[in-house]
Design a protein around this nucleic acid. Structure first.
Length: 281
DNA sequence: GTTCTAGAAC
DNA sequence: GTTCTAGAAC
């Protein structure tokens, strides 16, 4: 019932996967051969974990930024990922800068998280996937390019293939999800993200998470503040850039409206109670 | 992005 | 009285 409401979602194309992440690893391996580059599913069994069980680490690191992505990558020792000629070795795309005075600021936290092997769910030469540290649904991953791209504003036509690859990786994450038959997913970008470094959200539409707490959280995933990955790619192909509408931040202040039936609710607790109705059998 | 908390809303 | 939001601080 829920799936039909998101006819365009990737979940529609999901396949039955009785062997869970084992098959996913095989899929990734095949993909890797096609791309003629090494791929590693760093922690395949991570997919089976309930993200809600990983909330013990609630404090952000005092010094989250460990440096820019490329130097980190060169320094790290993940032996399954061989450096190849395809590994991006330079930045200089859309204003990425090495002299970042914001290093250490909370907004740079993703740069550190994406380098942490414990958080990596998947990686290849071009992208890395981590679980969102504060998941807003049962399944909530972030797909990040190794290349330093601060935000949607920095995207240009030459990034199209990278974005398509990010979408492909997202589709495979969804396909291997043990609950892909019962859950719907969306893949997209926040219009004005808080965290620096381009990241594609892959999020199940149950919104069943203790980390989903306020109106800003809700509206960032259920209004046009959430820009579908396919729309971003289409816009980039057609115009050579991604325009974010003025006033997007106002979308975060909209009334709390259920993403499935559009009923409005006065408070977050009331909305979350309502969601149970949609997701009870 | 999160946490904390004053004060609005009930 | 309690619940909840929204803005400051980080």
């Amino acid at each position: 019932m829920i799936k039909c409401l998101f006819a365009g979602s990737s979940a529609k194309r999901a396949i039955t996967n009785p062997f869970g992440c084992l098959i996913y690893r095989q899929l990734l391996w095949v993909e890797a051969q096609k791309r003629q580059s090494k791929i590693k599913n760093v922690q395949g069994n991570k997919f089976k974990e309930d993200p809600r069980r990983n909330q013990g680490d609630t404090k952000r690191p005092k010094d989250p930024a460990l440096g820019d992505g490329e130097s980190q990558r060169a320094a790290q020792s993940m032996k399954a990922v061989k450096p190849t000629e395809k590994v991006p070795v330079s930045v200089g795309h859309g204003g990425a800068t090495k002299t970042n005075e914001n290093v250490g600021h909370w907004s740079q936290g993703l740069k550190a998280s994406m380098q942490d092997p414990k958080l990596q769910v998947y990686k290849d030469d071009d992208v890395v996937v981590i679980k969102d540290k504060y998941p807003k649904a049962r399944y909530h991953w972030l797909v990040l390019p190794w290349q330093s791209i601060p935000s949607l504003k920095a995207l240009r036509k030459e990034h199209c293939n990278l974005l398509k690859h990010m979408q492909q990786v997202a589709d495979r994450l969804i396909q291997q999800c043990p609950d892909c038959d019962s859950l719907s997913f969306r893949t997209g970008y926040h219009a004005i993200p808080s965290m620096s470094h381009l990241h594609l959200h892959v999020i199940s539409q149950d919104f069943d998470s203790p980390c989903l707490k306020n109106k800003k959280h809700w509206n960032s995933f259920t209004t046009n503040y959430f820009i579908e990955s396919h729309d971003v790619i289409e816009m980039l192909e057609k115009t050579g850039e991604v325009s974010v509408k003025e006033g997007s931040s106002e979308l975060l202040k909209l009334p709390l409206s259920c993403h499935l039936c559009r009923n409005e609710f006065p408070t977050m607790p009331a909305l979350k109670e309502h969601l149970k109705y949609h997701f009870s059998k």
